[in-house]
Design a protein around this nucleic acid. Structure first.
Lengths: 345, 345
DNA sequence: TGACTAATTTGGAACGTTCCAATTAAGTGG
DNA sequence: CCACTTAATTGGAACGTTCCAAATTAGTCA
């Protein structure tokens, strides 16, 4: 309708005060008289004024925008992570540029550059595979706080939020051992990621602890997706001596493994123990309910956002690394004899 | 590091030209001499200059930012929708505010207001349940183009992108009928949404067409989630005369229904035919592979973004409504005797 | 060389806000 | 009624860009 937008001076004129006064009203200053405040507010409503945050940013050189870049939004782990961040960012009165890098480093770099031009106050990054400290150096060098989640980035001036992958994997494998399994595989995931390495490390440690000989054939990698899980089972089926249980790289792979087993006439949780990693929402309601290492992606997203906002507000960027604990949630897919009472849906 | 950011006048001074010239270089004007352009570009690099898009927006009153609000990012249908939008928005040189409303109208209103203050050039909205035309009226009134997707919003000055829910449901039920099913249920979904109504309409039409009497008990609603699907099956199990097949509100419900059936000793695709709606990524690899109505969320997201950008660039906001066709993808879960060759993973 | 056209370059105003120093208005105690 | 403190209000500069009209420089032709 009205192509020309109304500004602070328009309402100043209408109210018969100066633009400075209107500005004070806008930022809720106690300096201004209640009566004038009231008049100004009324006019703001009447004239349909909308605050121009861009102009404000220009003046005070500090925006209320944060950037969030996630490597794969279609993976529900990361989607929930993003939702957690959204929650706290939003309620702190910030808005977010939220972008999906699709594991492409070029895309990621491009998107971060664009966010920088638009003046973000901070960045949360769940980096694409193969991201290096250099990729965000310009940003960190210019004093913008950055929080890296899920995957770590050695050498970068950032804070980091990780989950205790090694301990989680160890706990999972220990549990399988306690159920009597001896031939335990590690299934799915990309070889070249730090997360993969850590989870495999936990897997190995638990096996050694139980004096079970390691067999590298039992570490079968694949894409960290449901399709990847199906593929892994196909490969496993031709083994002369098959494993009897598996810790999977993540829940998506675990679901795929269940699918694959069923396609081969094996019932997950009965003939074969399956444990996932992440505890995405569907894990609880799937059949069989998935035993998994709970990472609480949404909570992790919230913590990451809180950490970033803290640094933005305090103005000091420190480099803390927080490793959040994880816990094994025993459900049915591992063939456990008893359910934990809290986990009955 | 350097707390004071370098601006256009800094490089102008360094290059011995005026800020106007630098501005021209920045926007790739052909007016400027190649030699000066080169010098300026070199300095831009050296001094680590970053373009301040906020200042530019202030001057030209038109930004390169679009807003995207999605009702539920944790649902993979919507996540893929968002990824499709992200793709075209990004490559058109725009950035997006992408927010998750979590089906909360308050949240949605708040987030849209915030985006408005930040100066978006357009908005794509996948509305929260119960959104009304009034909720976005201030935005549309001020001449910002809005594209509504998935759910429609009667009375709003917006363009709309819908999928042909009715036809899809009709095709699905016809298929079940052709397989010999007579007692066919409609499972899941919230009663009060337009999408639900349309899909149920298609379901009814197909039954009438086949002279199968309607039975309202066979329309069993629930939350449109995996958990909702499980719950629906529980309720169905006590029916004196159970259905032999079901069209589900969406794929999430369909997966839940499969889980529920299995928990009750019924094998989906054998003892009971299941058809989903949406064709999310997992539908193909699940076991049994899910027969579903393919909506192509990512493509839909792309089209929505293209439509919005078209309106932004042309400066004219028309109110087109596009209904995109859908197609039934026959896989295993409906108990079809033959597979379509293209669908073998 | 002079006159004219084409190619470059350039001040300054403008965009909508915040901030500062300064001004004016309103009380208050003697 | 004065001096003084406190409460409210206010111009104008500043932020980093774009745009316009105008100025400068270079090139061309007679």
């Amino acid at each position: 309708m009205n192509r020309i937008r109304t500004s602070i001076v328009d309402i100043a004129r209408a109210a018969g005060v100066s633009k400075s006064t209107v500005s004070l009203v806008l930022q809720g200053s106690p300096l201004v008289n209640d009566k004038t405040r009231e008049k100004v507010n009324a006019l703001i409503n009447d004239l349909g004024y909308v605050y121009n945050r861009g102009a404000a940013n220009l003046r005070q050189a500090t925006s209320k925008i944060v950037g969030i870049v996630v490597n794969d939004l279609t993976n529900s782990f990361f989607a929930e992570l993003a939702v957690g961040m959204d929650l706290v960012v939003q309620s702190a009165g910030y808005v977010q540029f939220l972008a999906h890098s699709g594991e492409s480093i070029d895309r990621q770099r491009q998107v971060i550059a664009s966010m920088r031009e638009n003046g973000i106050a901070g960045l949360i990054l769940s980096p694409a595979r193969g991201t290096e400290a250099n990729d965000i150096k310009p940003l960190t060098d210019s004093g913008v706080p950055v929080v890296v989640v899920v995957r770590n980035m050695p050498g970068a001036k950032v804070s980091t939020l990780l989950s205790d992958n090694c301990a989680g994997a160890r706990a999972a494998v220990r549990h399988l051992v306690s159920l009597g399994h001896r031939r335990i595989a590690f299934m799915g995931g990309f070889l070249d990621t730090a997360v993969f390495a850590e989870r495999v490390r936990g897997y190995r440690e638990a096996l050694i602890e139980a004096s079970i000989p390691l067999d590298d054939n039992f570490i079968i990698h694949s894409a960290p997706s449901r399709a990847g899980g199906v593929a892994v089972v196909e490969r496993m089926m031709v083994f002369p001596e098959r494993p009897t249980a598996a810790l999977c790289f993540n829940d998506a792979v675990a679901f795929g493994v269940c699918d694959g087993l069923r396609a081969n006439g094996v019932e997950p949780g009965k003939g074969f123990g399956v444990i996932g990693f992440d505890d995405v929402i569907e894990a609880k309601t799937a059949v069989p309910a998935l035993t998994t290492v709970s990472v609480d992606p949404q909570g992790m997203g919230q913590r990451a956002a809180q950490l970033l906002l803290k640094q933005i507000n305090s103005g000091q960027i420190d480099q803390e690394t927080i490793v959040t604990p994880v816990r094994l949630v025993v459900r049915q897919s591992c063939g456990a004899p008893v359910k934990q009472p809290e986990e009955i849906a």
